[in-house]
Design a protein around this nucleic acid. Structure first.
Lengths: 100, 100
DNA sequence: CTTAAATTTGCCAAAAATAGACAAGTCAAT
DNA sequence: ATTGACTTGTCTATTTTTGGCAAATTTAAG
């Protein structure tokens, strides 16, 4: 299990019966890059997600959330205390939201 | 509420009655950098935490966890779906841990 | 109020991390 | 064995992050 976002957008592409070579130009990248993104070897820029959601007529928020989750997983990978850090970060964000 | 790690190591330093100018050299950085780290404007390298834990005789795991939490918060800041992404990432890590 | 020490801030250069581009490679179908 | 889709590797460019220094601000004391 590597990249949730990557897996999702690969699925979306397949469901639309599109080739990398067809989608990549729409995102102004080459097929190699998009391939890496779908495999989780590269990160897509956050701004590009909007375009991708358009292309696949997918829920933008869902894609952004998956993308963000991948960023988190990337940060905590290989850390023993990953889960605890996530828990603490979650509480921190909650507090933050309350006071804003 | 800015940086949990920064706040913690500032507290530790104060409890030990040490000045930035005294601690910074031990970490091979200048006072300006350490100041920024304590204020959460810069991130300390993960490897340096060990040294810091030694200096303050603090719990290494706790410091590392706080540091990691800060990295997460940094990644999700300004995102509406921060909490949900954290939740998803948490589940992802749990699954990951089960199969390894 | 003046000085001195501690901390903070701003700026620029150096270093590191990330993304882009392109060629070559694998794999599957025919 | 050729074609098309996808993947991989590598090199370069770009962006992001860090380090270092000087100036500015704050704090404490006399």
């Amino acid at each position: 299990m590597k990249s949730q976002f990557g897996a999702k957008i690969r699925l979306l592409r397949e469901q639309h019966n599109l080739y990398l070579r067809q989608v990549a130009p729409l995102l102004e990248m080459d097929t190699a890059q998009l391939s890496k993104i779908e495999k989780g070897l590269r990160q897509m820029k956050k701004e590009q997600i909007t375009l991708l959601a358009d292309i696949y007529k997918a829920d933008l928020t869902e894609l952004e959330t998956l993308w963000l989750s991948d960023q988190i997983v990337d940060v905590v990978k290989d850390s023993d205390s990953a889960l605890q850090a996530i828990y603490i970060a979650g509480n921190h964000i909650k507090d933050r939201n309350l006071t804003k």
